[in-house]
Structure formats: C-alpha cells, structure tokens
Write a protein that binds this DNA or RNA. Structure first.
Length: 109
DNA sequence: GGGTTGACCAATG
DNA sequence: TCATTGGCCAACC
C-alpha cells in the first residue's frame, strides 16, 4: 500500500477510538496511541489537530487530566454539558478527574 | 540526510 | 503544585 493510504488508515483508526469515548468520559493521547497500536501520543495529537473536527476531540486529554490551553474554554463548556467529573481545587488550572472519567479504548475493533 | 516542530509523557527539583 | 529536562514518533522543511 502507498504511504498516503497508510496514513489515511492511521487517521481513521485514531478517529474511531475517539468516537467510541462515551459522553462524560475521557481518554488520553497515549491510551489511544496504545489502542491503535502504532505511533505515539504526539501522532494522535497531530491527527486530531488536522482531522479531529469531525469527532469529540474534547474527550481526549493529557495523561494528567489537563488539556491544551487553547481548548480550555471550548472543552470546559462540553464538560459542563456532559457532566464530566472535574477537579479544580483552586479553580486555577482545570483538570479532568481521571480516576473517575478515564476511558480505555478497545485495543481491537 | 539532518534539523525543527507538535492538541505528548515521565522523572526530577 | 509548577517548571525544567530528556525522550519519544512521525511529518515537514
């Protein structure tokens, strides 16, 4: 297969895992990378940056439950809708309560 | 072929 | 709790 097709398949695989995250739950870049079985967290980030518009990208957060500064406002509104468990002791930095909200995507389709 | 850049991670102070 | 450091994987000059 061509490299372009390969890339397209990878994108597809990543988006599928993101889609399967239920409302009110979140997953991490590294967990998705592991589930896809290829590439790394950064690759997942790149895919979402380029093709993530069609999927609930706000349900993908960093390993510590924090999220990219640029998406804080948007993601926060979504979390309010979906009642995603948050932890913000000082309300300074917003993080998802990983212990309760973490979703592990299936490693096989 | 080599350097730079990301919606990243884990360890360390 | 926050900032720094080195490592990571692939895409893109």
């Amino acid at each position: 297969v061509s490299r372009a097709d390969d890339h397209e398949r990878y994108v597809e695989a990543v988006l599928r895992r993101v889609e399967q995250i239920p409302p009110g739950r979140v997953s991490t870049y590294s967990a998705i990378a592991a589930a896809v079985g290829r590439g790394g967290p950064r690759q997942v980030g790149l895919v979402l940056a380029g093709y993530g518009a069609a999927v609930p990208w706000w349900r993908v957060v960093r390993a510590d439950g924090s999220l990219p500064p640029a998406h804080r406002p948007e993601a926060l509104a979504r979390y309010a809708e979906e009642e995603t468990p948050l932890v913000d002791p000082s309300a300074n930095a917003v993080r998802v309560l990983m212990a309760a909200a973490l979703w592990t995507p299936a490693s096989v389709d």
